[in-house]
Every structure is written in C-alpha cells, then in structure tokens.
Computed example of a mutant assay.
Amino acid sequence: MSSSVEYDGDYEKTEDKNHIYQHAKTMYEVGGREREGASCCLFLFRLVKDKNSDKALSLTYQHNCTDFTNICNLDSKEIKEHFWKIVKSVRFDE
C-alpha cells in the first residue's frame, strides 16, 4: 500500500467488530510555486482486513487543491469523515 503513494511512515491501527484498519495520511505540494500552478495533495489510505477471512482491501483517497486564490484546507474534518464513510461501507462476501 505504501509504495503506490510513496509513503514511508507509520500506520495507525484500529478495529471494530468485523474489521481491522490500518491507516495513514500524507500531504505534499507538486508542480510550480504557489499561485503559479502548484497543486497541494492530500492522500488518505487505509487497509481494511476482514477478521473472519483472509480478505483485505486497500483504499487510497486523493484530494487536490489547485486554486490558491482561496484558502484550501486539505486536512479538514469533513474530508476525513467523508473518506471514513467510504471505508466503513466496505463489506466482504462470505
């Protein structure tokens, strides 16, 4: 999972009744300088592992800000909650 977004850090681990989650985030700027075509990116990624089988799913969520004329809060609670809703919707067939 780390190699697809070039992440070299630690993962947090949480779990619920049916799943184990490993998750992390990274933010960086690509392209030119601010106001000259630079783009800020937020990557959220999680590994969802089913506790009752060997099934797992890796999810990567990318959010970009390219309009530096406005304040762009990449690390917002709303973005994280939206991604978490997607992650929590994962169901593994038996």
Rank of each mutant, 00 (worst) to 15 (best):
W84P: 02
H63Y: 14
E94P: 06
Y11M: 10
C41H: 08
T14P: 00
K85H: 08
A56N: 09
A24H: 03
L44F: 01
K55C: 04
H63I: 05
I86V: 15
C40R: 09
T66A: 13
N52R: 11
Y21I: 05
K51C: 07
F68N: 00
E78Q: 14
D8K: 15
G9E: 05
L57S: 05
Y61C: 07
S3N: 13
E34L: 05
E36T: 10
I71Y: 05
S39A: 11
S58I: 10
Y28W: 10
E94D: 15
K49E: 13
E36S: 13
I86Y: 08
K25V: 02
Y11R: 02
E78W: 03
D75S: 05
K25M: 03
E34N: 04
G37W: 09
Y28I: 07
E34H: 02
C41M: 10
I71P: 01
M1R: 04
L44H: 01
C40Q: 12
D54Q: 14
E36R: 14
N73A: 06
S2G: 11
D8Q: 10
C72K: 00
G32N: 11
K13L: 09
T60A: 11
E81Q: 15
N64H: 09
F92K: 06
T26F: 01
K17A: 15
E81Y: 07
L57W: 02
I20E: 05
Y61W: 10
G9H: 03
S89W: 08
T14L: 10
D75N: 11
D8W: 05
K51P: 08
V48W: 00
Y21Q: 07
K77V: 02
Y28D: 11
L57T: 06
D50W: 10
V30C: 04
S89T: 06
L42Q: 01
L44I: 12
E78F: 05
N18T: 12
K17Y: 09
D8C: 03
K85N: 14
